[in-house]
Structure formats: C-alpha cells, structure tokens
Design a protein around this nucleic acid. Structure first.
Lengths: 213, 213
DNA sequence: CAATATTGGTGAGTAGCACTATCTAAGTCA
DNA sequence: TGACTTAGATAGTGCTACTCACCAATATTG
C-alpha cells in the first residue's frame, strides 16, 4: 500500500506519518523507486501502537521511541525489560533525590529493595514530597492500604505475563504497564465517585456525617 | 516579605512568581506603595501547592487554576467537588466517545452509573480503546481484579475525608486525588519490580538500567 | 541628600514539543 | 502525454510555561 492509503487506513495525516518515519518511530517502507515506497499491515499495526503510546499513555515522542526500540530488541532479563517501560513512563527525577525514605517504605511493604530500580524509588519519593509540600500528609495506614492494593495489581500483572516468546512477553509487559495506567486512574475516579455517592448521597449534604455546605 | 524573599523562600524565580500572579494562580500581595507589595506565609504555602499541582501532579497551568479556584470556593455538593479535581486531571475526551461500554462495566462492578461523571466514563472507554488499538486485550478477570483493587483504594479515599470544614474537605479530596496519582503509579511499578524479581529472579541486573543508547 | 538598588507592572521573547506545510525532482497511472 | 502522487528535505505553526527587559516609582544606604 502507498502512503496515502496507509494514512487513510490509520486516520493519521500523511505529514504526520512522514514525521514518525523521520523520528524513527515507524520503520520505513520498501522503496520501489526513488519516489515510491510500499507499506503493509505491519505499518498499520505499528502506527496504532504509536498513537496508543503517545495519545493514550501520554508518552513523549522520544519515550515512545525508546519503548518501541525495546519491544523490537527484547533484552535478556525481564528486569531490564520492565525498566524500559518504567523509565519511559517515569519522567526523570532530579539526581539529588534522597532515596532513604523509599527504602524504609519498601522494607515495610516487603518489597525487596534490591529488586527496585533507583529512579522508580526516586519517583515515589518525589511524589510523596509533592504531597507533603502541598500540606497533605497521609496517615501511614492509608499508604499501607494503597500499597496493598497496588501489590495485588502487580501480582496480577506478573502472573499474567506470557512466557512463550520474548516478543509476546515484551509486548505484554510494556503495554500492560504503560497503557493500563490511564485505565487504572479512570477506574479509581469512577470508584471514588461511586463510593462518594454511596456515602454522601448525590445532594450537597451528607446524610450520616457533618454539614457539607 | 518582599517578592525577592518570597522567591528565596520557595526557590522559585521572581519572574515565575510574577507569571503566576498574572495567571491568577497566586493571590496578590498587599500593596504598600506603587512599587512595593508585601507577601506572607499564605503566599509561600500557595506557591508550594502550585508547584505540587503543576510539577508533581502534572497539571497544566489552566487546570491548576481551576483546581485552586475550586479549593477557594468549595461547591455545595461533594460531587461537584470531586468533579473539579477529576476534570482537572482528565484530559477532555472527544465528544463522540461511546459510553455504552463503560456502563456495562460499571454495572458489573456495582458502581452506580448515576453516580459517575460522563467524562470520566469516556476517559475509561478511551483508555480501554487505546489498549485494544495497540493489540492488547486484557482478560475480563484481570480488569475485574484491577477494579476490585481500585474500589478498595477509593473506599479508603472516601472514608478518610474529613467533614469538619468545607475547606479541609476540599483540600483533602483534591490533593488526595491529584497528588496521590503519581504515588500510586510509582507504587505499582515498585510492586511490579518486586513481584517480577520474586517470580523470575534477577537474571539481569536489577540495578538501575544502563545507558539508554 | 544623593547615589544605588529593588520593585510592580507589562509586553515581548524563548525553548521545546508535536506536528504541519511547502517545495522539488522523480516517479506512477490512465 | 498529462494529471496525479510521492520521497525527502527544510521551514513554519501553534501551544505552553516560562524568562527577559524595561521603566517609573520607591526603598535603602552612605
């Protein structure tokens, strides 16, 4: 198929496809002459993946490139593989972040610190720092409850990983990590709305608790 | 305190503070003359909050403005209040998103559809659409497990809401929703790394990933 | 009191990002 | 043959979150 057909098939402008080609997000088509190239289904699939990473998961173009490159060249260890997805999603933290705070939390939750990436720990510390900077200091019990819920999710994530082929594994881990994040956040919001409705009712005044207005 | 001291206290450049003043994120100081104004602790706190919303939570300036305005003018109903936080965090979905898919999921999870905001449902549908566009179709059981975990988190969120004053409620809900999101995502990644390490071992180096080409 | 520094207010400039438009030579298709 | 399409390259756009520069008015300092 020619580029205009590829554009029609994916609903992405030709100029944008050329841009993705230039940025090495999309592999080139087969040149049939100096001004013609042939594209196929793999390009359609790849473009849909690109749009999901950039649009749904909110990655930058360069982070998407790193992820796509990682999918094509699966690393040997599963940890490197996870790391690629995680680093793409985590905006790089400042170098001077003190990680000690994360270590004690990891210990409390039984997550081996040796398994955990430094920059991910830094992301947690920074996020918690943002909370306390804003004057919001969650009780430890709440954090523990969050941690328990996320551990449950992570168990499900890891259990479901297919181990038949490296490509399938890569695909599952990366997409399951990155593209699932907005799903989780949307679920949380809906669950909050539902819980809030049940507890406080739809009106302004809650029925069982103090005044709301 | 003068603006330069405010800048020193918050580690934010004077020009940026002036920008936040212009953008109505920060309330003005008390003018003592045509070229002098006095700032106080409330400005310091507000600036920290602004940086947390923009930096940690990743909000845009205009979304942050909406949130800050919401905190200052607490709406009557808790649902409007939740809505302010949720809309700030949710990038507006296309209008033509079909919500039916969300409705059946909500029903399955026992979350009353009448409690749930339309645009949040659209966000869920879009996120799921992104998944399937990318060729990733999670089994329903997995989604159910995610939903159960998020319900648990949402219950904790709602239970912990203080009801003593509208301001405190607002503060708690907005910050607990927005600033907690990066915490949750970081937790999930760490839990994934820990679970992956337990399940697959650290065949590669579990340390921070190497140079990204 | 005079010299120097700082400030509020404002308009313009900047950097980065994700495209988008335009152009040309070289093709393809009817 | 002649209208249409394309690869490849360069340049331009719109947006966002700052950042800079300037000026008149004031504050501070010697």
């Amino acid at each position: 198929m020619r580029i205009s057909q590829l554009a029609a098939a994916t609903d992405i402008p030709v100029a944008t496809i050329k841009y993705y080609l230039r940025e090495n997000l999309l592999h080139e088509g087969v040149l049939t002459s100096a001004t013609q190239a042939r594209y196929d289904d793999s390009h359609v699939r790849r473009l849909k993946l690109i749009r999901a990473l950039i649009g749904t998961a909110g990655l930058s173009v360069s982070a998407a490139r790193a992820v796509l490159h990682g999918i094509e060249n699966p690393p040997d260890s599963r940890h490197e593989l996870l790391g690629i997805a995680h680093q793409a999603a985590t905006r790089p933290a400042a170098d001077d972040v003190e990680i000690a705070g994360a270590q004690s939390l990891l210990a409390r939750w039984g997550w081996g610190a040796e398994a955990c990436d430094r920059s991910t720990q830094a992301a947690l510390v920074q996020a918690l720092q943002g909370l306390s900077d804003a004057g919001f200091n969650p009780p430890e019990a709440l954090l523990d409850r969050y941690a328990a819920a996320m551990r449950d999710i992570a168990e499900a994530d890891v259990e479901g990983v297919p181990t038949d082929s490296p490509e399938a594994t890569m695909q599952y881990v990366v997409l399951g990590t990155l593209l699932m994040e907005p799903v989780l956040l949307a679920m949380r919001r809906l669950a909050q709305q539902s819980a809030s409705f049940r507890r406080f009712g739809g009106s302004g005044t809650p029925e069982s608790a103090g005044p709301a207005s």
